[in-house]
Every structure is written in structure tokens, then in C-alpha cells.
Amino acid sequence: MSRWIPRQVLVLSKLTPLELLKFRNPDIKEKQLLEQFSRQGKNPIKVLHEHRSQLAFEAKVIKVLRKFKINFRFTKRMVDASKYVDWADFVITTGGDGTFLAASKLIRDNITPLMGFNSTNSSSNLTLPTQYTENVEKAFKKLFAGAYKLVMRSRIRTVMYGKGLYSHSFLVNEKNRTQGEKIIDALIRSTERKVADAMQPQIRILPWLALNEVFIGEFVAAKRTTLIIQVDNNPQEYKFRSSGLCVCTGSGSRSWFRAINFKGRETIQEIVALATNNALQLDDKRAALLMQKYLNHYVFDPEEQMIAYKIRELHRASTWPKPKDLQDVQMCRKVTVKSLSYDSGLIVDGGVSLPFNHGARATFEIRPEDALKTISLN
């Protein structure tokens, strides 16, 4: 590949827990903030160490950019990053998979490349190998020399149909819609929303493309969600209850989707023993290998123009699902889902969420123009 040096780089960096607390409490000293972590059961020494390590890594990346005389803008704020993303011809993240996913939401074309550094030396499915955490300059030298591979990671386009599609989105960890409100205030706001919704279109292409997965489920974990699913061009609809539905890409097949499919070692051993009438007893090592083989069966290439769905904890009873031949995990090209739930959400990459309640419908599919251009180094 020919030599390429980006002209304008946007660096989106991870916001540490200590920084977040400082932003929310600008008048409180660091020592007092660390005491708050202690009261929450967190080790303040570890929190401070992670904070300083993150800052040191950011300084390392900035030093390399300056050494190569590259024009860049550095931010930890999504608001600022959204302003600069159209200015940049290259986007870099310093953090982990979460920061990478956040940056991917900002890039809506398949032209601007994204590369992620893992600032913590932890395992990652999306960022560069940890050898480049220790040697940031080496990564840039490879990049400028053309010693890299472009990976066009597929992303899920979500189209929603129904009422209330333009409700304000929120982060999953900020789900707290009416707590502290007076009932009359909540009713007034509800009425205002319904009037506003009636004036809005009843179809919406979500502006957030899912790099890993879209998950549908009730916000109260103990409640089952009731959905209707239709796959590809098959006219058959299946009605089912479960603890949620995960629709993923090839990138996501290595993430939450994999965890949902995971079975414990003891479960594998028991199934094999029952299937063979105790003729075959797997030791721990063989059970682990069999489990790994099973999980690998559902891993597919990030560039694959396919999606997979997994029904989490499918409720099976005398009348569920309807019809009974519903597959709880399947590869396909398009999924359509209708909601029969009352407090559920559609969650993109574990972050942004919108209400997905009774009567709402959504389709999930992959299109080449929605791919995310990412940089992979050997």
C-alpha cells in the first residue's frame, strides 16, 4: 500500500472515572473525590493509578503526533468530537472498546478511517494489539509506510416504525425517567410528548450505526420481554418471550453475542454425559475445548455482509414460542422485530437507547455504504 500521512487527526480519548467526577464537582479537591470512591467500595489508589496511566498514555500519543508534525485536535468530550469529526481525515481513539464504539457512532460514512489504541493493555476486540500500547511510534511508522490493512467493518442500520420515534435518546446507565418527579408533572410531560409525537413522521432511520450489536429488552431485568420476529424474506412470524434479543455484526460476534451463547464447563459435561448415558465423561480440559469449538462456530468475519441474532433465555413452555420451531440463534441478512412490551428499550452498542414499546417495529440489516473503515496493523 502506498505511503499515507493524515493531514488532520481527531483524537478521542477515554474519560476516566476520576475525571468524570471532577467535571461534575469542579469545586471539590481531588483528595475528597477519591474519598468518595472509597465510600463506594472502590479502591482509591487503583482509581488514581488508572487515571494517571491514562493521562500518561495520552501524552505519549500527543508527543508522537507532534514529532511527525501532524495537525490534530484532542478531546474527551463527545460534544466536541462531533464538531471536529467532519474536519478530520483520520480518527484515533485512546482507551478501550468503549471509546472505539463511541467514536464509531460519530463517523457516518465509509471514508474516514478509525484506529484505536488500547491504553490499558487489556484484552480488546476492536483496538490495536497491546504491543502498540508500549510502542505508539511504531504504530505510526507502520501506518505512514503503508504497512497496514483496511478492514471495512459492517454496521447495522436500524429503521424504526411507529409512534414516538423521535423521543429523546438517553444512555442506558442514565435510565431514570420519572424518579423525583411529582405525578402531575410526569402526566403533563407525557401528554406533551404524545402531542409532539403525533406531529412526527412514523418512520425513522436511526443516526447511530451499530458496530457490535443492537439489543432489545426490558429495562427491569426481572421482567420478560415479548416480541415478534421475522427473518429475511420468510413471511412466517414468531411470537416469543425471553430476557432479550441480540442482533450482531461480525465484530459483535466476538463480544456480547459470544457471552450470551456461552455455557459453563459443568453444563457441557452434564449434557455430554446425559447424551451418552454416562459412557463419555469429559474432563475439564476437554469440556473447555468443546465449549470453545461451539463458540467459534458463531464467530464470523467483521466484513461479512450478514447479521446474526440470539434470543437470550428463550422461554419455552406448552404455548411458547409460537410456532414452536423458532430458532434461538441464526445467521441472516435482515431481521424485523415487533414489540409487545411496555417498558423496553432498543439499545445500540450497549450505550444509546430509545424506547421500544408495544406497537413499535424495527428492521435491522447491513448495507455496504454503512461500513466503518478501520485500520489493522500486524
Rank of each mutant, 00 (worst) to 15 (best):
H51S: 12
F68V: 08
V151D: 03
C248W: 10
N118M: 13
M160H: 09
L34N: 03
R361T: 07
T225N: 05
L314Y: 07
Y166S: 03
R108M: 13
F117C: 01
V299W: 06
L106Q: 06
R39H: 08
S167Q: 04
K334S: 11
V220S: 02
V231A: 04
S253D: 04
E369D: 14
R3L: 15
N135I: 09
E35S: 15
P355W: 07
Q54Y: 13
F364L: 00
L206W: 01
D343K: 06
G244F: 01
L55Y: 10
V214N: 04
D89G: 08
P207A: 04
W256V: 05
R286F: 12
R316N: 08
W320Y: 10
S169R: 07
L33W: 06
S122F: 05
K163E: 14
Q131C: 00
K338I: 02
A287L: 03
R258P: 00
L128P: 09
I229G: 06
R3H: 13
R258Y: 00
F300P: 05
L18C: 14
S251Q: 10
P368L: 00
F100C: 02
F100K: 08
R265D: 10
Y161G: 03
H297N: 09
D370T: 14
K163P: 08
V329N: 08
K310T: 08
P17Y: 02
A371D: 12
T94N: 06
V231G: 08
K194Y: 06
Y238C: 09
L10P: 03
I92N: 05
R177T: 13
R265S: 02
D370P: 14
N296P: 01
V348P: 09
N121G: 11
Q202M: 14
G162H: 03
E174P: 01
E35I: 13
R265K: 05
L354M: 05
I375H: 10
S2W: 05
S124L: 11
Q179L: 11
K69Y: 14
N212V: 13
L187R: 12
V136R: 10
E369R: 11
R224F: 09
W256I: 02
T226G: 06
Q230N: 09
R193P: 00
A88R: 04
C332A: 12
E266H: 06
E365Y: 15
K310R: 07
M1S: 11
M291I: 14
L150Y: 11
R108D: 15
N278F: 11
E270Y: 02
V195N: 08
I183L: 15
F72N: 05
L211D: 03
S251G: 07
R155Q: 08
L55R: 02
R361P: 04
R224L: 13
F100Q: 00
F219D: 06
M1C: 04
M291C: 15
G146D: 12
L150T: 14
M1Q: 02
I62P: 02
R177E: 03
I111G: 10
